[in-house]
Nucleic acid binder design. Structure first.
Lengths: 226, 226
DNA sequence: CGTTGAGTTGAGAGTAATCAATGTGCGTGG
DNA sequence: CCACGCACATTGATTACTCTCAACTCAACG
């Protein structure tokens, strides 16, 4: 982790702050780098502040017992991390792990709170973030409960493409493991695996090395049954 | 639905507003009554404002297809409803249904927004509400995915008691249908039923008419496996 | 007295998790 | 350069859970 300059336009806090605050924010915030696979923060740790991603991608997870994890969401440049520390417990209820090499801005709690009080527009922006994430979370809750596994895996794929996009050949820009897809869809590694071989067999999906490409989105859709 | 006076101390908006605003809020807000079973608002309807419950209890649900519903949460006096209308779509992503006869305060969007801008403390309070609900939602998401059905039903019972309490005899204060418990636990009516007969057989649970009583919380806990 | 609908129970089917076995690639050390 | 071991990928077989469907009971009501 090392301190660096921050790309203003990619940082939530800078983007939504009053111009007058920007120089102050520059002083206050610290930028850290995380290597792929490193934990940015962990379930149970005391909350010290809030993070803004301005480079790389991150998975936000929650554990069940020792072995099982659920990926709650993926986050990418421009997204906020660690705001779940707000309210109640001063301990993170979740973990955040870098999926690629990442750069994140860190703002400590006291400065953030001061900013929120002084700058209602920022406060409103953050509230919007919360509201949207709450909506997404509840929708996902329903999906995880009522959809069958194949549908959930399909949804995971769409979600991942939505978050990270595809390269010029149509492959998902992020190298994501089948284990992570399983953790997002709330299923097991093997099940994802078998489904993928079924899909590649039918030509709906292609895999090249570690990367995945969707050939037939409509056919995928059809696995989502109401 | 009829207009009535509002019990100030049970209303989120009044409780967290500046004293100077209270009289204005009194002017602006409207109180409605809803009979048990009536929908307060429904998935897909345009968002017109926000509700505060000051009497009765409510289930907040989301539908999957035509038949399957998931109860996202229970709300009772003092809780906020309809704030998920914030951000993005101006349509409710969820429905709210009265579980008992209810009285709710309604504040229309424009006045709420004005209040939030003028009163940062209120804004912060609402943000806290969002943050806490987001935490709860994500925890529940994990539970629904990784716990087995019996554990989820147990959790539902605890959750319901937590929200609504028990009467002097230890029975859950709210008459809740097995269907609703199933919808909360993400399972079917029959499964809840069979589990309940198993539990009453072992003396862990008692049912009297429509009401439910937990005799042995520890034995119930043991169905939650990590 | 028949009908309706909700409460209750049982049998069967299907899905996905678990377990186990085999295959594959890679790095390391001899 | 080869042999070995380890971790991870892949696949098949088995198990177990829970959903679905259907039947039955019982009470209320016309």
């Amino acid at each position: 982790m090392q301190k660096e300059d921050c790309l203003l336009d990619r940082c939530f806090l800078c983007k939504h702050s009053l111009p007058a605050w920007k120089s102050l924010i520059e002083l206050k915030k610290t930028t850290f780098s995380f290597k792929k696979g490193k934990k940015i923060f962990q379930e149970g740790e005391p909350v010290k502040g809030i993070f803004f991603i301005y480079e790389g991608s991150v998975k936000v997870t929650m554990n069940w017992g020792e072995q099982k994890e659920l990926i709650l969401r993926f986050a990418k440049a421009g997204d906020v991390l660690g705001h779940r520390g707000f309210g109640g417990d001063p301990f993170y209820p979740i973990s955040a792990t870098a999926l690629e090499d990442c750069k994140v801005c860190f703002i400590d709690n006291s400065f953030l709170e001061a900013s929120l009080i002084a700058n209602p527009a920022l406060s409103n922006q953050l509230m919007q973030v919360f509201a949207q994430e709450l909506q997404k979370a509840e929708k996902r809750m329903r999906d995880l409960v009522h959809m069958e596994v194949k549908g959930r895996i399909v949804l995971a794929l769409f979600e991942i493409i939505d978050a990270f996009g595809t390269d010029e050949n149509g492959y998902i820009s992020l190298q994501i493991s089948r284990q992570d897809i399983a953790s997002y869809a709330g299923t097991t590694y093997e099940t994802v695996f078998k489904f993928f071989t079924e899909l590649t067999g039918k030509g709906i999906l292609s895999t090249s090395g570690k990367s995945i490409k969707i050939n037939d989105p409509k056919a995928l859709q059809s696995f989502i049954k109401y």
